[in-house]
């Protein structure tokens, strides 16, 4: 792994859930590489395993979930050694030292992500004091400065207020403050704006870009919104049924989509100025049941280009242009 330019590299990751006697194959074979200092987008429809993949990175999984294989290599320092997060004990000291300090995460629903009984100041403080030895006065000053930087008006006063006194957008800013207070190298935003209205969405996403500028943080944005990917990300990975089917720069994916699924995703979003007579493309069918293990390409049942080869196995990723990977038999993939 090139730790100079890569901060996170996920290899053949598999995450599964035990639900009664059934096994849910949420993440089947994810290969993903996040460039240092970049904003990486992860896109896919609901239930394709994008959130589970990101939660697996920090092992913030429910007790019935387990990692069935693969590596999550994380390199906090450029040129330094990479550590394998997938091999760590979920409740162990090593993992806890990573969480909140080296890799921080913000979640989909800011309304429910803050503990209602503590002031927001103390909730940010909790993260800071867990990882750094600072005295409380100093810590408070740092938190207030960060709140101001994140565009929260009257931060001194807001410091002592409770989550229910904040609006949704402000709560998400507080969540970002919790995530950023220890200056993590990587910020994972799991659908950070899905629960917010469109104007607030733009503010929050722009804020995350600013953080990248000022703190050099690498960012992963998980979303199902192609517009967000196009506007805020450098690179993008397209996921389908627990696999990354295509990845590359935003320009590559949008201008030259290769995988049939990506093509459909790109074409199902209306573009301003497109002729009114154009039909938007739809993807027929729905995602298969994740509790049934596939023995061949998961997209085959919905794919217009499926051939006999697609029913025989999984396509390996091929590089169709520099940095642009696609996994599809129709695009020259081999099983």
């Amino acid at each position: 792994m090139d730790t100079q330019n890569t901060i996170l590299q996920i290899d053949h990751l598999k995450t599964r859930f035990k639900v009664g006697k059934k096994t849910v194959y949420a993440v089947n074979d994810v290969n993903l590489s996040v460039a240092r200092g970049h904003v990486q987008g992860i896109v896919g429809e609901s239930g394709c395993g994008k959130s589970v993949t990101m939660r697996t990175v920090l092992q913030l999984l429910s007790p019935n979930a387990y990692i069935a294989g693969g590596d999550i290599l994380f390199a906090p320092e450029p040129g330094g050694d990479a550590i394998d997060l997938a091999k760590m004990d979920r409740y162990g000291e090593e993992m806890r030292a990573i969480r909140g300090q080296k890799i921080a995460m913000i979640f989909q629903n800011p309304m429910a992500s803050l503990n209602p009984v503590y002031t927001i100041g103390s909730q940010i403080m909790e993260n800071l004091l867990l990882h750094e030895k600072v005295d409380k006065e100093e810590a408070k000053k740092r938190i207030i400065n960060l709140l101001a930087e994140l565009g929260i008006p009257e931060p001194e006063q807001r410091y002592n207020e409770y989550p229910h006194q904040f609006s949704g957008g402000m709560k998400q800013r507080v969540m970002i403050a919790i995530a950023m207070i220890c200056n993590p190298g990587l910020l994972i935003a799991d659908e950070p704006t899905t629960a917010l209205d469109v104007t607030i969405q733009a503010q929050i996403l722009r804020l995350m870009l600013e953080l990248r500028e000022h703190h050099g943080t690498s960012v992963i944005i998980v979303t199902h919104n192609m517009g967000i990917i196009a506007e805020y990300c450098d690179d993008v990975a397209v996921m389908y049924m627990g696999r990354v089917v295509e990845s590359g720069t935003v320009r590559q994916i949008f201008q030259n989509p290769q995988h049939p699924y990506t093509r459909a995703l790109v074409r199902c979003v209306p573009v301003p100025g497109m002729p009114k007579t154009n039909d938007l493309e739809t993807i027929s069918g729905s995602t298969p049941d994740a509790s049934i293990a596939f023995d061949h390409c998961e997209f085959e049942p919905r794919c217009k280009f499926a051939t006999e080869a697609c029913r025989k196995g999984f396509p390996q990723a091929v590089e169709c242009e520099p940095g642009h990977m696609v996994s599809c038999f129709a695009r020259g993939g081999q099983s």
Binding site: L58, L60, M95, M105, F107, A112, N115, V117, N127
Partner: peptide, 26 residues
Amino acid sequence: NRDYITTARAKGEKEGVIFAKHVFRN
């Protein structure tokens, strides 16, 4: 099962502390 417990876990807090500080009081 609330989201804010995941938030506490994402901060790197110990399971015992999460229970005593975040779960019990609520």
